[in-house]
Amino acid sequence: MSEKILVIGESRDGVLRNVTFEAIAAAKKIKSDAEVVGVLCGNENLESQGQEMVYYGADRVVTVKDDKLASYTSEGYGQAVLAVIEGENPYGIVMGHTAIGKDLTPKIASKLESGLISDAVDIDVDGDEVVFTRPIYSGKAFEKKVVAEGLVFATIRPNNIPSLERDETRTGDVQEKIVEISDLRTVIKEVLRKATDGVDLSEAKVVIAGGRGVKSADGFKPLYELAEVLGGAVGASRGACDADYCDYSLQIGQTGKVVTPDLYIAVGISGAIQHLAGMSNSKVIVAINKDPEANIFNVADYGIVGDLFEIVPILTEEIKKLKA
């Protein structure tokens, strides 16, 4: 029997995040002949989400359904996932390097006394060894890491390892596993939702990010217009969030979200290292800044020096023309 790799799925508002599908592709990169087993926790929709994982390449899916799993908690999900691991005895585990992935995977690795390679952006197989590449020092360097002993356990950075094509002819079992989830000691009383609707920032192909240079909440409007014509998402620097021009859910960087879009347009952002940590892996970077010495130009592929309030509307118009 072939060895198993578990992929822990993650949903938001009942819909699986793309990184779940990327994790399936990652599992296949780790071991092409492995049986990829999806794992889903929650209290509803698990059957259809499981089906979706199969369309993206999972061979089968195990679900754990319980009202105590309605929202993510490390305790609840920890119990569920550990029970599945015990039943399946996998060769490897993959999950997204998201808020939930970062919270859950170290707990599981620690319980199992296994290694864990976090935030991988690439996976190669070199003979018998699986080599993971991950950014270190805020993206100023990269390291290649291997598992020395035991479980091959990794989290992957969203938007770096392409998912397989969705294919509705793929079939696989989606089966519920009954797990007794004990009472939780840590309770979520309330969630203040800030994250805006629309494109998920960490999965967007195009990101328009505004900084303190945007000067006000109103100043963000032209950025939203540009994002709309490009089908992208709006992000921000810490500077813009701290100044209350936009919500913290838009923050990109070491403290905020890490994004790897095809196109990143930094508008009125100076390019502090903590900001670069969240976006320097973007495929193409454009900087718009009035200060020619701004550090953002050092990572940009293309730059325009000038007033963003003049430049952004012209850019929006030009792109509209192009798309017309």
């Binding site: 296994s114 730059g303 020096v305 012209i314």
Partner: peptide
Amino acid sequence: EPKTKTVDIFLPPEKEAGRVLEGEL
């Protein structure tokens, strides 16, 4: 004994200097 091992560390490929455009806005 660590469970994982670093086999290499490298710098990202030196990015070609970006193109700062010139002329009328």
